[in-house]
């Protein structure tokens, strides 16, 4: 068989007519997409019942490469859009894949409230510590004192700890892996998908174009290797300890796995209660 005739193993989940993709060599988003694709295969979902929603940015382009019903929406609003999809058609498996700036800055409020409502969806957040699509500006996740195009003297703002935010808001599943922890990341996404309610998986990934260049961290592979080598798995670690320093140790693992009724469950039980009450069953 000629190489050109070989089928991509993920062909049924990827839009092959859109390949080559726009991501730079050494970017970590591809790993996250691979892990997601593998996870979707493992959970054996009917792909017709999967909906992927993205916001804007490099990771925001993921929706355009997966062969499910998929929406590339507005900056930060993927989760809000996905909320409408899930409530409109509860049988859909809804996944939001977007970047750190999209989900934690402009979309931070939607992240908080979807987690609080416990909308049944999985959010995969690729965190590359920078706004890459717009040209490498400082992000709310940029460690101190990393350089970016808009922090030429080093970042002086405190970075956000997204898993902690997700936990505080009420997410039922919170995990973090690096882009090279392919097997663990995949398994984690499988768990997140199976978990009823709002699940959140952060993927630490290199931006080989901007973050790497402005901080002289080598190519994408060097960075991936660095994150991998400098991460420690600590399942159940309190999320307050998950801050990330510049080129420092990164704590990864599954931090939160708990039960809470989902939004749809609470709505249903309210409806039942109300209907019984109306029939004279209640007082």
């Amino acid at each position: 068989m000629k190489a050109s005739e070989e089928k991509h193993p993920m062909e049924n989940l990827l839009r092959m007519d859109r390949i080559p993709h726009i991501w730079c060599p050494g970017c970590g988003i591809g790993n996250a997409v691979s892990a997601f694709a593998e996870a979707i295969k493992k959970v054996e979902y009917d792909l017709d019942e999967v909906c992927v929603v993205s916001g804007i940015g490099c990771t925001g382009r993921v929706a355009g490469y997966v062969k499910t019903d998929s929406f590339h929406t507005t900056h930060g609003r993927g989760i809000a859009y996905a909320t409408g999809v899930k409530l409109g058609n509860p049988k859909m498996k809804v996944i939001v894949i977007s970047g750190d700036g999209d989900l934690s800055a402009i979309g931070g409020n939607h992240l908080v409230h979807a987690a609080r409502r416990n909308i049944d969806m999985t959010v995969i957040c690729v965190n590359n510590f920078i706004y890459a699509m717009t040209g490498g500006q400082v992000a709310p996740t940029t460690p101190r004192p990393a350089f970016t195009t808009t922090s030429p003297f080093g970042n002086f703002e405190s970075p956000i700890n997204i898993p902690r935010l997700a936990e505080a808001a009420g997410a039922v599943y919170v995990a973090r892996w690096t882009a090279l922890h392919m097997r663990r990341l995949t398994d984690s996404i499988v768990e997140a998908l199976k978990k009823p309610g709002f699940s959140f998986v952060e993927v630490i990934a290199p931006c080989a174009m901007y973050y790497s260049r402005t901080n002289r961290l080598g190519d994408g592979l060097n960075m991936m290797k660095f994150y991998y080598d400098n991460s420690v798995i600590k399942h159940g670690e309190p999320t307050e300890n998950l801050d990330i320093g510049f080129q420092e140790e990164i704590i990864i693992g599954k931090f939160i796995d708990r039960e809470r009724p989902t939004f749809s469950e609470t709505v249903e039980s309210w409806k039942q209660e109300y209907k019984t009450g109306q029939q004279g069953g209640g007082d």
Binding site: R77, I79, A80, T83, G84, V85, K86, G88
Partner: peptide, 17 residues
């Protein structure tokens, strides 16, 4: 929803269902 931005976003998502 948490604001009007997300209110209309959710409406668009729901309309597609």
């Amino acid at each position: 929803m948490e604001d009007e931005i997300s209110a209309l976003a959710a409406v668009l998502g729901a309309s597609w269902t």
